[in-house]
Write a protein that binds this DNA or RNA. Sequence first.
DNA 1: GCCGTCACGGTTGAC
DNA 2: TCGTCAACCGTGACG
Length: 372
Amino acid sequence: MPKQLFCCLEHPFPYSIIQTYGEVNQLGGVFVNGRPLPNAIRLRIVELAQLGIRPCDISRQLRVSHGCVSKILARYNETGSIFPGAIGGSKPRVTTPNVVKNIREYKQGDPGIFAWEIRDRLLADAVCDKYNVPSVSSISRILRNKIGNLSPPNQYENGKQAPPQSSLSYNHIYPYSYPNAMSPSGTKMSNPPGVPVTGGHVSISRGWPSPHTVSNILGFRAFMDPSAISSAEGYVPKMEDWGSVNRATFPSAHGVNGIDKSSIDADIKYPQPSSTLSSYVPACAYSPSNQYGVYSGPAGSYVSPGHHWQAQGTSHSHPGGGVAMHPSDIHSSMAFKHAVRDGDRKPQSPLSKQQHEALSNVHGLNLSTSSS
DNA sequence: GCCGTCACGGTTGAC
DNA sequence: TCGTCAACCGTGACG
């Protein structure tokens, strides 16, 4: 991975650390190419935006590229979710066993049926919806590969009547909330009952509707609760090191705001690294080896004593400074940033005390009001 | 200077 | 077990 060490002559990241954990962007922020920002930062971006902070200021304060801020905010506005989309994997399979079964039955009922007819019937019988109905070519492939040798038994005793039986139920069995389905493969996991099926994209908020609304973010502690956050994201392991902010308010290892963790997990597209981890260990997309400071890695975990990972900052109480974005450090990082950068940059949209308090109250994040 | 958009290089995970 | 593929990511540049 080429290190992009442009920028920031003042960036506080020792090269060895950057080399190990990520890259430094032009704003001095650390990121891992190809990996999403920590949810804490994503959340902060949304919070700040809600508070009226301009995206450009958010970008500078959090040291995230403005393109990223723009994207996250756009995503949030569109979906209500701050979470990244599912990374990797394949689209949910449409050729589920039930679909195959129905196709087989259609074929048995009418050996001369065309693939497009089957497709129509799948839709008509509500076996599939328009979002997960197999393509004609897929149906042809199924016919060829899976049903090809099917010698039509005396199917005509059934006439061409399509088995009406399962029509409606299949949608419940395979309610893909594609593409964000936790488990695209219907064979592995179906959406929890009640989870709306959206044919579209970004179903995160659909599948997990409320916790990401503005009101929830700004008002409901459940989501703002670091535990909720962490359980929703996956940076967990290290969020423990985020200080009291994270743990103090952890409600339960198995539930967040009344939402059963399992269902939350199900909404998170990332498989949990370990079920034995704290329930706040989210479906982290980050493998431990991939975690680096800014991604919640405890500063100490990668900031060796030898490194003065002292972030440009004044936030001495947090070795990670503005780098390891401890939730509790988010403000600190901003603060140190102000302290350090105010001199070389136009005044940012500083948070008023009121705003700051508002932020501090948000999900009980214990944002230090100290700018030092 | 701000902001939306896009290409790019990268990661991830199902197949 | 490994390669492929297609999803996603954030950055940086452009207009």
